[in-house]
């Protein structure tokens, strides 16, 4: 199956490594992408918290482009983009008023039902066997805390792919890479992404709680599928260190990076060196396990 690709703004800048590793991994797994031409921002948090019409129109513009390009299925690796796209689709599906308003704004008539998938659905659909078969590196030393954040599984009535309270799909994928997973509490607790810049204090507190819970439950790496989450959990660890001096650095990987590692790619290739947290820790872990 060919997918349309909606990278979203973050993957072209602060989350470049997510984009890099995703492309590498799917290439290896034989999945192909067709990037949506001239895609624009989904509107993100800023649009839906201030202007509902704008938010729906910005998201639906991309669905419109996908439709015009003949794409039936699109992948939105950014959890926030994914959420905006499916929620906007759901709104226009449910409320004819909003549909008409949006169609008028974009001078278009939505005909097809373009299906938007998140990154977890992509790997689950394309088959975990492909990952298992192509595994090159032993990752069993890794004890991963799978962090879904808020927007990947909520609202479950619309996302319709995993449980909103105790999701398990990312664990399945991580386990396919050979890494171990831990059961922990804050899988779906919010990191406060929306306030990353304006209220960094909140974000630092929330992210700290999430990392601490992962450590308490025996994790030695966190795996995420959202660029916002990654920014907060990775980049904000310096600020965390300033506020909580006993904070110890904790590696945070994108799911695609972890899959890349298991497929035998090296850290540079996957863009892991672009992270803020010192990755030496995981690095040694990997080398050790490779030797052992």
């Amino acid at each position: 199956m060919k997918y349309g690709y909606f990278p979203g703004c973050s993957l072209t800048s602060s989350a470049k490594e997510y984009d890099i590793s995703l492309r590498k991994v799917i290439d290896k797994l034989g999945i192909s992408f067709d990037e949506i031409n001239d895609w624009s921002c989904c509107g993100a948090t800023s649009a839906h918290v201030t202007n509902h019409k704008l938010s729906t129109a910005l998201a639906m513009r991309n669905i419109m482009l996908a439709e015009q390009q003949g794409l039936d299925n699109i992948i939105a690796p950014c959890a926030a983009c994914y959420n905006r796209l499916i929620i906007s689709q759901n709104e226009i599906g449910k409320h004819t008023g909003i549909r008409k308003e949006t169609e008028d704004l974009l001078s278009v008539k939505f005909k097809k039902d373009v299906k938007v998938f998140n990154i977890l659905e992509l790997f689950l659909k394309s088959g975990l066997n492909k990952i298992i078969e192509n595994r090159k590196r032993e990752l069993s030393e890794l004890k991963a805390a799978c962090y879904y954040g808020c927007l990947l599984v909520r609202p479950a009535a619309i996302t319709k792919f995993d449980d909103a309270e105790e999701p398990e799909s990312m664990e399945k994928i991580v386990e396919a890479t050979g890494a171990d997973t831990v059961d922990w509490n804050y899988k779906t607790e919010c990191c406060g992404a929306a306030h990353s810049i304006a209220r960094r204090d909140i974000v630092v507190d929330l992210s700290k709680k999430i990392i601490d819970d992962a450590i308490t439950h025996g994790a030695n790496v966190m795996v995420v599928a959202c660029p916002m989450c990654h920014t907060n959990l990775d980049m904000r660890q310096r600020a965390m260190k300033r506020k909580y001096p006993d904070h110890k650095e904790f590696p945070v990987l994108y799911l695609t990076e972890l899959i890349g590692l298991s497929l035998g790619m090296d850290e540079k290739e996957l863009g892991i060196d672009l992270h803020y947290t010192n990755f030496k820790y995981a690095d040694t872990l990997l080398n050790n396990s490779a030797k052992g």
Binding site: V49, H52, A164, H195, R199
Partner: peptide, 28 residues
């Protein structure tokens, strides 16, 4: 304004009231 839009309230609401959406409208 501090609502992060994480939807935890909306998915757990026993009355299925979408509070996150409500907050959007209040801000708007």
């Amino acid at each position: 304004w501090l609502c992060a839009g994480c939807l935890a309230c909306s998915v757990r609401c026993p009355k299925e009231f979408d509070l996150a959406k409500f907050m959007d409208a209040v801000r708007e």
